[in-house]
């Protein structure tokens, strides 16, 4: 029974990753670019989902991890002429180190206090970026494309402005993050994270150091968010403090809720649906936020577990 479930999970997720890869040959140019962006933002949401969806810790400061990755990668390219690979790794390191240190303080709180502490730290990071404007160029932002060397591999050059390179790099980052979050969700560690969400005291009395598990979840979450931020800077060539603002802490929460918190595929579904909802309605009316807000209300009323959460509850209990 168990191994059958594992096989199903692996097949489904590989199929999704494969489908996204194939879509680049089918989609028209406009949607091609959109999908690349969605995959990077969905990666951000997947990082958020590890902490919020599985472990049950709601953060309102996740933009700081995204921005840490973005600036970690962007500043290295801008000032130090780093290559894309090294800059990407540094972005992840920036995200995970910020999460590791931040967690030691913030995880002493739970529930609403945790929400507020994360929001305060997030705002502090945002303001810090603006305060050191001379270094960060926070308020007007900067582009990395002029400084970024094309990647030379086996005698072939890949320029990051090339849409195909962009798409496939975004796809790789997405596939990596989805594999990691699925591996965690379906593993014994994932079971403990869910247990912390459902009943932390009981988990503690089973002999688990729940602080350590929450800290681990935060670090993984920060690393994935940092990877998404770094990829965003490198692929879409813009780095700015606006990505550290509270809006970018709320987005991953909305995407995750819409797609289904605590489901591996929810963040992708949520990000995609929200992206196209805004894209379609804003082309049609200036009051598009009214429609977006209305659909979110409808979702909360009829699908409180999000789209993939509803799918899991109704048709596929085995989904991780």
């Amino acid at each position: 029974m168990i191994s059958g479930r594992t096989r199903r999970i692996v097949v489904l997720h590989l199929a999704i990753i494969g489908l996204l890869f194939v879509l680049q040959f089918v989609l028209p140019a406009y949607h091609h670019t959109n999908l690349a962006r969605i995959m990077v933002l969905a990666t951000f949401a997947m990082g958020y989902n590890i902490l919020f969806g599985y472990t049950g810790l709601m953060s309102l400061g996740h933009a700081m991890f995204f921005a840490a990755g973005m600036y970690g990668a962007g500043l290295c390219v801008y000032y130090l002429q780093f290559g894309a690979g090294a800059a990407f790794v540094l972005g992840i390191l920036a995200g995970v180190s910020l999460a590791a240190v931040f967690g030691l303080f913030a995880l002493r709180t739970t529930g609403v206090s945790f929400l507020i502490v994360t929001m305060m730290f997030g705002q502090a990071c945002y303001l810090t970026l603006l305060y050191f404007n001379e270094i960060t160029l926070g308020d007007q932002g900067f582009t990395v494309s002029g400084n970024l060397q094309a990647l030379h591999q086996a005698g072939v050059g890949f320029a990051y402005s090339d849409p195909d390179v962009k798409f496939n790099a975004a796809w790789l980052v997405f596939a990596g993050a989805l594999s990691i979050s699925t591996a965690i969700a379906a593993s014994p560690i994932g079971r403990v994270l869910i247990a912390v969400r459902v009943n932390e005291e009981r988990t503690r009395l089973l002999g688990y150091n729940t602080f350590a598990y929450k800290w681990l979840a935060l670090c993984v979450s920060g690393a994935i968010a940092g990877a998404a931020g770094a990829a965003y800077a490198l692929l879409f060539s813009y780095v700015g403090a606006s990505f550290a603002s509270i809006l970018y802490s709320i987005y991953p929460l909305l995407w995750t809720l819409l797609g289904g918190a605590g489901t591996t595929l929810g963040p992708l579904v949520g990000t995609g649906v929200m992206f196209y909802l805004i894209d379609l309605t804003s082309g049609w009316t200036a009051a598009y936020l009214f429609i977006v807000g209305g659909s979110l209300l409808a979702l909360v009323l009829w699908f409180p577990q999000g789209l993939m959460g509803a799918v899991r509850a109704r048709w596929a209990r085995w989904l991780p």
Binding site: P188, R191, V192, I194, A195, V198, N199, E201, R202, T203, L206
Partner: peptide, 14 residues
């Protein structure tokens, strides 16, 4: 004080 919402298997597995 079991883990409500999880299956019996998951409860004992923890």
């Amino acid at each position: 004080s079991i883990f409500a919402g999880l299956s019996c298997y998951e409860n004992v597995a923890l």
